[in-house]
């Protein structure tokens, strides 16, 4: 029943955009090769550059945050649209040009064919790739181990931005008040009893813009994320639910 329903319905590709004026036009062009049952929503997260204007001029469907709310909130805004418009699932796709359309297609195809899987994560590590720098590689691998310890489920690429979420997972994620869209999200998903699967993807190096893991945040990020993981993992404050 669920399989038929999901195959009949459409998926929403959510692209969070923040100051990506140099790469966004390429990404829009790239996403024209998406599967025919997918729509695209760009969430302009209060960009200070011309990203929003470029998206408008290209005739894209854009949701403009009046202020910068952060990566996770951009994803959650996409989920709000997907849930309101009854999409069967959502794919998160980065606006920096790092993801390939072939990988997006394979995630959607897998999600369509396997309705029992709630979350599909594109993993560069499964494809034998490494993170952009050894330090980021170390951070990602450390969180992978920490997530495995806390949940009993090993996800190799916890920092991947390319994810497929079933409608059930969308509802769950929209209900969580999250600070981190990666490792913390995976822990909450596991605790919520959702099935997670990783598929190998190739990640291109960033051509322009600045990564959310830029140097200034590289020291704060591990501290923040470790705290969030411990809170999420041990359930110190339980699953914080958004009741609105």
């Amino acid at each position: 029943m669920e399989e038929t329903r999901r195959a009949d319905r459409r998926f929403l590709i959510v692209v969070p955009v923040y100051n990506e004026e140099r790469s966004i036009a390429k990404v829009v062009e790239q996403l024209k090769g998406r599967p025919s049952d997918c729509d695209v929503l760009y969430v302009n997260d209060g960009s200070k550059d011309r990203s929003g204007g470029i998206l408008e001029s290209l005739g894209c469907d854009v949701l403009h945050h009046p202020i910068n709310l952060g990566y996770v909130e951009a994803l959650r805004s996409g989920l709000a649209v997907a849930l309101a418009q009854d999409y069967a699932g959502v794919v998160f796709f980065d606006a920096d040009g790092q993801h390939r359309i072939e990988d997006l297609c394979s995630l959607v195809a897998y999600g369509r064919e396997h309705p029992e899987v709630d979350v599909i994560i594109g993993s560069r590590y499964l494809a034998g790739q490494r993170a952009a720098s050894p330090l980021r590689d170390l951070v990602a691998r450390t969180y992978s181990v920490l997530t495995a310890i806390l949940t009993g489920h090993r996800v190799k690429d916890v920092t991947s931005g390319l994810k497929f979420l079933s409608r059930r997972a969308c509802k769950a994620m929209y209900g969580f008040v999250l600070e981190d869209g990666h490792a913390e999200l995976i822990i909450y998903m596991c605790k919520h009893g959702l099935t997670i699967k990783e598929l190998p993807i190739q990640v291109r190096s960033r051509e322009s813009g600045s990564s959310m893991y830029r140097f200034s945040k590289l020291f704060l990020y591990p501290l923040r994320t470790t705290l969030l993981l411990l809170v999420a993992g041990f359930g110190a404050i339980g699953l914080r639910r958004n009741t609105r």
Binding site: N44, S47, K48, D49, R50, S51, G52, G53, E56, D61, V62, L63, H64, H65, P66, I67, L69, E73, R76, S77, A80, V81, A84, R244
Partner: peptide, 27 residues
């Protein structure tokens, strides 16, 4: 939550009226 609600309402309004956006607010 407020900012998200604003963004969603603005998008709905734009889609229903087909109105162009205020370019200055996008840059």
């Amino acid at each position: 939550e407020l900012a998200r609600s604003m963004a969603l309402i603005e998008r709905r309004l734009r889609r229903s009226t087909g109105a162009p956006q205020n370019e200055s607010s996008r840059t």
